[in-house]
Nucleic acid binder design. Structure first.
Lengths: 237, 237
DNA sequence: ATCAATACTTTTATCGATTTTTTTTACTAT
DNA sequence: ATAGTAAAAAAAATCGATAAAAGTATTGAT
């Protein structure tokens, strides 16, 4: 049993993957987010079937779900393809994420209890440990980062807001991975995270949202030139 | 060829339904939104197969898509069921719709050009005609109403905002249909629509958002008691 | 009577094969 | 050459059947 594209996955999806559909969904999602499946490329059923070692039904089901989440686009009778990327889309996602994550954060700051506070502190601590490590593991960092941001908004009561946030976070993550800027030396990511955490725990919503916006915008800014380069290279081919 | 649950559909989905999956997706969606498929009820494959006259594959694919949009919930190896309704969910959807539709409206007011203006006026006119009709056709009203609200935000440039709006609009529509309050005599819906339109065309974003919020909130308010009644009745059975 | 283990039934999830549609290729007339 | 058309190939969509899992009823021991 050879795993061609991906094997391990540390994505945002929670709970056990009970069905084959679930597993192939997660692997496809992971492969798209991590750029192993190129934006715009065709997702043909037969090759994928063989690669992931599944039948057509679970595969199509997984692709359908990914279509609803915007990772895959489909046109009737013309199959599926990996969703395109663009600077406009990155901007759109960035702005939406700032707004929605801001809303969720504001709610959390109002509603968050002691458990929320300690979860934030704990997640921040775990993230810090990875950030300070001599040789930082990217996969690990990704997971801890997601955990930290999730902890911050975990006291948000709106499940629809959470649902939309999850989609946007992972969409943004795709762009981040494309530019391979999980950790940019020139940026003080740890400082940015600290600012968000401190403001949140002080229940200073305004400062927290501002710090969060700055954090997200800086991340996006680092992605933009790398993305532009990738787009240019693609335009030639 | 007998159509058991639904035949005609005037849903928000655009473009032709090229594939069987598409058609069954739209019909299921329509049947859920219009309450023909009861919240919480099991969606068994075999009966649905026969009812909609399709194979298991397109059916499951449609159900998967609906799961991503929140109309259907699924648990591994335990099949699909129609998503539950609750007053909390209605409140959540209402608040989210107010915020996101507000954002989209504000963007439209800033960016909208002459074409946008004339589209709003035209959609308002068509809606007015249906509203003023002696015997108002509910299906027709639904479509014109959606058209009007869509015209208002049509100059919004964020496709993610549009995507989320679409989901929320239809989710809200489900609750509206449950309470069968598409047209409530005691409410001056036409007046509410007029207020939104006028403020939008005057480019008064603040007033437009306020009028829109009032409109959505009033609609939700009418739904709440009817929903509570339905929930109570269900609790007994 | 109660509980647990087991056989049976129903339902879900999955596969391999078939049908339908699109895309590519080859051919012909202008 | 070029455009149009027909045949062939490739790919997508779909189906019917099978395997796996969950749920239900039955039996027997305490």
């Amino acid at each position: 049993m050879s795993e061609a594209v991906s094997n391990t996955l540390l994505d945002g999806t929670r709970g056990p993957a009970r069905t084959l559909t679930d597993r192939v969904y997660r692997r496809l999602r992971d492969d798209i987010i991590h750029g192993r499946l190129e934006p715009g490329s065709k997702l043909r059923i037969e090759p994928l079937r063989q690669q992931y070692e599944v039948g057509a039904t679970p595969l199509r089901e997984a692709l359908s779900r990914l279509t609803s989440e915007g990772f895959v686009s489909s046109e009737g009778q013309r199959g599926f393809r990996v969703s395109e990327v663009s600077t406009e889309d990155l901007m759109d996602i960035t702005n939406m994420r700032i707004t929605l994550e801001g809303m969720a954060l504001a709610q959390s700051i109002i509603k968050g209890d002691d458990t929320w506070e300690s979860n934030v502190v704990a997640a921040f601590h775990r993230l810090t440990k990875v950030e300070m490590a001599a040789e930082p593991d990217l996969i690990d960092w990704e997971a801890r980062n997601a955990e930290f941001h999730l902890a911050l908004i975990s006291a948000c009561t709106s499940s629809w807001l959470r649902r939309f946030y999850d989609v946007l976070y992972d969409q943004h993550k795709r762009y981040r991975n494309m530019a391979r800027v999980a950790r940019d030396a020139r940026r003080d990511i740890h400082g940015e995270h600290t600012a968000i955490k401190d403001a949140a725990l002080k229940r200073d919503a305004k400062a927290a949202l501002a710090a969060n916006e700055l954090h997200i915008r800086r991340t996006a800014e680092v992605c933009t030139p790398a993305l532009a380069e990738i787009m240019a290279k693609r335009a030639n081919a």
